[in-house]
Amino acid sequence: MKLLTIVHIDGTDAIEAAALRQRTLNGYFESFGYECESYLYGAEKFYEDAVKQDFAGRVYAQRFHFISAVPVADEISALIIGGKFDGVVIEESELANDIAVLLAAYLDRRCLTNVFSVTPNGTGILCKRLSYNNNLILEHEIKAPFVISLRGYEKILTAPSGAAFEFFPLRSMENSEYILSQKPVSKAGKQGNSKVLIACGMGVETCEEIEYFRNYAREHGFNFGVTRPVAIRGWAKLGETIGVSGQTFAPKICVTLGVSGAAAFYVGIENADFILSVNTNRDALIIAQSDAAIIDDYKNVCGKLLDSLVDLYATL
């Protein structure tokens, strides 16, 4: 079976991480005997940086000036037809679902979106995805030809692909038939992937303390995020939200402070190796969903806890 994996290049500073993700994803499918090729798309000029990276196998790349799923899907569909791919797997990104469904509609393929687990099973692919605000897991089987888009994908443990990298840059798409003009408004300050995540919830009592934890995380190379209500009350940007309407993380250690553990938040940390929660409420949902918990006011604990994480980090 021949598979095309699609990866979004989210800025040239993220290209090394994108290469690791591409190798990992391809390595997973190759362990099931798939032959994989990949397609990279992004808004910034990235070809020069991409060619220096450690991608795996045959990799096509295309730059799109206008941010839109339609031209990306148009270009990829030509590639799919020419390359005779049985399946397409699109890595998580804001346009992943849009591109997936457009491709499936253009090419009359089966489709599943928001998939977090993919297991080839001989007859097809067993996919799992979340529904009902992440409170229900659905299991589907999808058969070739298919398009799948991923979301909150579970950790891959197989070895990354070692296929020799061949780079095929495609023509840069500068025009659009229906987007008349575009101007950037703001760029997100993206956090890299740290092994430690600090997540603050409504139990953190003041805006100043949220700022303290944010700064502490930044200074020590940790990731930082908040639950959605904290952002809504104006103590953090919406972009700092963890969960279904924000970011997902897969750190080695996630520390939650004053978080209740609603499903919409929890999916943002579900792939953490180890979750440690600090909460005064023993019955909070997050406690049962954590590997370890301290039932205490976060103020009594966080000083020593954060310092111990910094010490751990320093040993790396």
Partner: peptide, 11 residues
Amino acid sequence: WDAARIEEERK
């Protein structure tokens, strides 16, 4: 309502 719901209401 808990504190989170109150924040939603305020918004």
